[in-house]
């Protein structure tokens, strides 16, 4: 975190021409290293529309296996929309249309033969506000394994629940009260419960949509630690409002602006030597 703030400071000092052009070029091309070899997911010319309104313009980017990619940008820049198009959660939104290719291990997830149910089991999601089901802690975790038939016996299920809670760092806190309602936990615990719920079906990718924005700093720190641990086994795409958080948890950072992907680079580079003036303007706090 110190590194990041120091970085933003130096960036501010070096380039401080106040009248910078903050408009997005129509022919804007994403700068930086957006592609990689053997990507877990790759997006090509993704456009997302809500009715007549276009929310995402020609985004192409790769997500490597086991990396943590952070998506930052001002409010309304489309980062959440983009994230939700990665496991087709946008399907539930009326009038939402996605164009372009989103490949998971080389298969287009928008192909008409694709099974959305299976896709979402492989690409899990954690939401902005903790949304545990009004069931017991155990049932919350067991929900996914049950619907996907991952457990053959009660013992299997117990194991999955315990393992998931351990991975989410919640086991010690809740092992005595597994059968009490999940809604009775604190906000931070609820969010870790939701993460545990997501990893209970062993997804390959976990999408996180501002997972800490409803949490206090201590709970946030706990989740960030968790993200770091999880990155050993999962590919994680996280949308965040906090630049410090992006700096702390991610390997690469993608900067979105008005529906366009402006820059993708290793996190350190984005926060020390941003390639694009818009990125720089954002991370130095000139708008956002």
């Amino acid at each position: 975190m110190k590194e990041a703030t120091a970085a933003t400071k130096t960036a501010k000092d070096s380039k401080s021409s106040p009248k910078q052009n903050l408009e997005v070029d129509q022919a804007q091309v994403t700068v930086g290293n957006r592609f990689c070899e053997n990507p877990k997911m790759s997006m090509r010319d993704v456009n997302v529309f809500y009715g007549d309104k276009q929310a995402i313009y020609d985004v192409s980017v790769d997500i490597a296996k086991n990396e943590v990619i952070a998506m930052i940008g001002p409010s309304g820049c489309g980062k959440s929309t983009f994230l939700r198009s990665l496991n087709r959660m946008n399907d539930t939104v009326d009038g939402c249309k996605v164009e372009g290719e989103v490949l998971l291990d080389g298969d287009n997830i928008y192909h008409k033969n694709l099974d959305v149910v299976e896709l979402r089991a492989r690409v899990g999601m954690v939401f902005q506000k903790p949304n545990p089901f009004p069931k017991s802690i155990f049932e919350n975790i067991a929900y996914g394994p049950k619907i996907h038939g991952l457990a053959d016996s009660r013992v299997d299920l117990d194991e999955i629940v315990e393992g998931s809670l351990k991975k989410a760092g919640l086991w010690e806190e809740v092992k005595e009260r597994l059968h009490q309602p999940g809604t009775g936990l604190s906000g931070g615990q609820q969010q870790r419960l939701c993460i545990a719920r997501a990893i209970a079906v062993s997804p390959e990718v976990i999408l996180m949509d501002e997972p800490c924005s409803a949490l206090d700093p201590i709970a946030t720190a706990r989740i960030e630690e968790l993200i770091e641990e999880l990155s050993q086994n999962f590919t994680i795409a996280i949308v965040t409002h906090s630049m410090q958080q992006a700096a702390r948890v991610s390997n690469r950072t993608a900067y979105f602006h008005l529906g366009k992907l402006i820059e993708v680079n290793p996190t350190e580079q984005v926060f020390t030597m941003p390639e694009h003036q818009l990125t720089e303007a954002y991370i130095t706090g000139r708008f956002g």
Binding site: M89, T92, Y143, G144, R197, V201
Partner: peptide, 8 residues
């Protein structure tokens, strides 16, 4: 959303 995102 929570349930759908689990693949239900």
């Amino acid at each position: 959303d929570g349930s759908l995102a689990m693949g239900a």
